[in-house]
């Protein structure tokens, strides 16, 4: 399937999802749906670096928060429409990804992982001490109740996140099928051999961290408008970092389908657990599933289904 066809199909599905949600007419569906979509973008973004090149990013929350706080900053400084903020948040977090990669990607993989963890804490401390964006107490964002042509504001946000989801999935699938994705796979398999085959590994890894970080920032940019109030501990929440890893790992890391499946599954479980029991239980389930899958089913759900289908046909 060509990329343009894929984008068209995705857009059609997205339009159908939106129409369905409107027909259902429940505001809660939009609120819950927004979270699921946001996690699809985050998981897909994580997987572009983690799944395709094999470098673990523990600092997804940092990139997400950079997007969120870019919006907060501009909300105070010079209000801009959300699509513009999404682009700005993406550019900024992409640049941070690039810088982060430049610092640590020349070292062993574990250092990159630890470095991303460090980045999250450093950025959180900076934001906590930066009173212009609210400091530790957080910042309120006044949002309109209605959006022209669309109706309730949450529907507008939902639509934006839907568009971002289509964008993220198309980027991921595009990379997979390009020369870039081919190079990423060689890095994941064996970096030394990749270099010896002429693959400029450092450059490709930097491209991956930039794209991945950028998409995470884009996912975070509308967040203040969704919640109406952001504080460092919510924007930098560990649950973003854990979900961003768990979703691709549980879904399957080698293709764009895995993070999509993992995100829909885990985000839905968490929404359900939050409403019925407690949000702690929801994240506990995610953690247990993550450990269970990496030990018992390293190829994720996609691998399990693939193995089951091969088993039946062969």
């Amino acid at each position: 399937m060509r990329s343009s066809t894929f984008v068209l199909i995705c857009t059609a599905i997205a339009a159908a999802v939106f129409a369905l949600a409107r027909w259902y007419g429940n505001e809660y569906a939009f609120f819950a749906g927004y979270v699921v979509l946001q996690f699809i973008v985050l998981a897909t973004a994580w997987n572009i670096l983690g799944g395709y090149t094999g470098y673990v990013n523990f600092g997804s929350a940092a990139f997400f928060a950079v997007g969120a706080y870019t919006s907060i900053f501009f909300h105070k400084f010079y209000p801009l429409p959300i699509p513009v903020l999404i682009v700005l948040g993406g550019v900024l977090s992409g640049l941070i990804g690039l810088g982060m990669g430049y610092l640590t990607l020349r070292l062993r993989g574990a250092f990159f992982a630890i470095g991303t963890l460090a980045l999250a804490v450093v950025l959180q401390t900076l934001v906590t001490n930066w009173t212009y964006v609210g400091g530790a107490r957080g910042a309120y964002v006044l949002r309109p109740n209605e959006m022209e042509f669309i109706g309730p504001y949450i529907q507008y946000l939902f639509l934006l996140m839907l568009a971002l989801t289509v964008f993220a999935l198309s980027v991921a699938r595009g990379i997979e099928r390009s020369q870039l994705g081919y190079g990423f796979a060689t890095i994941r398999d064996d970096e030394l051999a990749a270099e010896a085959s002429g693959v400029p590994t450092l450059r490709l890894k930097l491209i991956a961290t930039t794209i991945s970080g950028g998409l995470m920032g884009m996912a975070g940019a509308p967040f203040p408008y969704y919640l109406g109030y952001v504080q460092p501990s919510s924007a930098f929440g560990l649950e973003y970092a854990v979900n961003a890893i768990a979703m691709p790992m549980i879904g399957g890391t080698t293709s764009w389908v895995g993070p999509l499946i993992g995100a829909i599954l885990l985000a839905t479980i968490q929404q359900w657990a939050t409403v019925t029991i407690s949000s702690e239980l929801g994240v506990l389930i995610v953690g247990v599933l993550l450990v269970g899958f990496v030990v018992l089913a390293p190829k994720g759900i996609v691998g399990l289904v693939g193995g089951w289908r091969r088993g039946r046909s062969g």
């Binding site: 983690g50 094999g54 470098y55 673990v56 523990f58 993989g109 574990a110 992982a113 994941r188 560990l238 854990v242 890893i245 768990a246 790992m249 890391t253 702690e280 994240v283 506990l284 995610v286 953690g287 247990v288 993550l290 450990v291 990496v294 030990v295 390293p298």
Partner: peptide
């Protein structure tokens, strides 16, 4: 297995312990 999964394993353990 690639170190990716080992890292994710310990990260998961950390998280599960905390929660």
């Amino acid at each position: 297995e690639d170190p990716l999964r080992g890292l994710a394993f310990f990260f998961g353990l950390l998280f599960v312990t905390e929660v």
